[in-house]
Computed example of a mutant assay.
Amino acid sequence: MATKLPADEVIALYRQGSNLRDLADRYGCAPNTIKRILERHGVPRRGSPRRPTVQLPEEDVVAAYRQGGTIAGIAAQYAVHGSAVRTLLVRSGVELRPVGRRRGSTGKSTKSKKSSLPKREVIASYKRGSTLKVLAERYGVSPSTICVLLEGEGVERRKSGDWESVPPPRVQLPVGDILQAYAAGDSPRAISGRYGVSVSTIQRRLREARSASSRTRKE
């Protein structure tokens, strides 16, 4: 795998601030593969990985948290680490809730949060192949909340392996926008969080786009 990667490009991105995990996601390999490339070319490792500073919309983040969103859910929405969201909230003077408790948690929080979700949209996304975890991160709730909504609407839950015989419909994604974001330095993980799909889905679309581009050049 390491010999097939563009070493010069990997080194340049690493020196610009990308960390091993970002680069591994970008090229669809293990972080150790990136590490071996850097070591082979004598690139000194950074003491701690650095990510570009992301400017979060303070008012939107605060509003989302006060409406019951979790730090993890908001972080997933903006493709940042939870510590970035927590720091912003503290700096804005927001009183943080105890870990694991949502706003107004009295045993009825799941029911209240479930009723505020766009049911048709959630059900349609689930039937197209989105997992409970992906939907939970997209709407800033727990997977169990999504599960309760689906069961309440009579939606049959998928079992492990259900997609092996009948694959889910292909999710429609703006491939052009994804390619631009990737070319600008965004990692597949960051892009996947933006569109609410798995990292492997983004990696697959990038591979397909590269193959199509290669075939076009050959023709």
Rank of each mutant, 00 (worst) to 15 (best):
M1I: 08
A2N: 13
A2I: 11
A2G: 06
A2T: 13
P6G: 12
V10S: 02
V10P: 00
L13R: 15
Y14W: 02
Q16N: 14
N19F: 04
D22E: 13
D22H: 09
A24T: 09
D25W: 06
D25A: 14
D25F: 02
D25R: 02
C29W: 02
A30H: 15
T33L: 04
T33K: 02
R36T: 15
L38C: 05
R40I: 00
P44M: 13
R45F: 05
R45Y: 14
R46K: 13
R46I: 02
S48A: 13
R50Y: 00
P52M: 01
P52S: 05
T53E: 12
V54E: 03
Q55H: 15
Q55N: 15
L56D: 11
P57G: 12
E58G: 06
E59V: 04
V61I: 15
V61A: 12
V61K: 13
V61S: 04
V61E: 05
V62Q: 05
A63K: 10
A64E: 11
A64M: 08
A64Y: 00
A64I: 00
R66S: 03
G68W: 05
G69N: 04
I71P: 01
A72S: 14
G73M: 00
G73R: 01
I74D: 09
Q77K: 13
Y78K: 01
H81Q: 09
G82N: 03
S83E: 10
A84Q: 13
L88H: 13
L89M: 10
V90L: 14
R91F: 00
S92I: 00
G93D: 05
V94E: 12
R97G: 09
R97Q: 04
P98F: 09
V99H: 12
R102M: 07
R102T: 09
R103S: 01
G107P: 08
S109F: 05
K111W: 08
S112E: 14
K113A: 15
S115W: 05
P118A: 05
P118V: 04
R120H: 02
S125D: 15
K127V: 07
R128C: 12
L132P: 03
K133A: 11
A136F: 07
E137W: 05
G140K: 05
V141Q: 03
P143Y: 05
S144F: 10
V148T: 12
L150V: 07
G152C: 02
G154C: 12
G154K: 10
R157I: 00
K159P: 00
K159E: 13
G161P: 11
D162P: 00
D162S: 11
V166N: 09
P168H: 10
P168V: 03
Q172C: 09
Q172A: 13
L173T: 07
L173W: 05
G176Y: 00
D177S: 10
I178T: 07
Q180T: 14
D186Q: 11
S187W: 00
P188V: 10
P188Q: 08
A190L: 03
A190E: 12
I191L: 11
G193C: 13
Y195N: 04
V199K: 03
V199M: 03
T201L: 08
T201S: 05
R204Q: 13
R204H: 15
R204E: 15
A212I: 10
S213R: 15
R215N: 11
R215L: 15
T216G: 02
R217W: 03
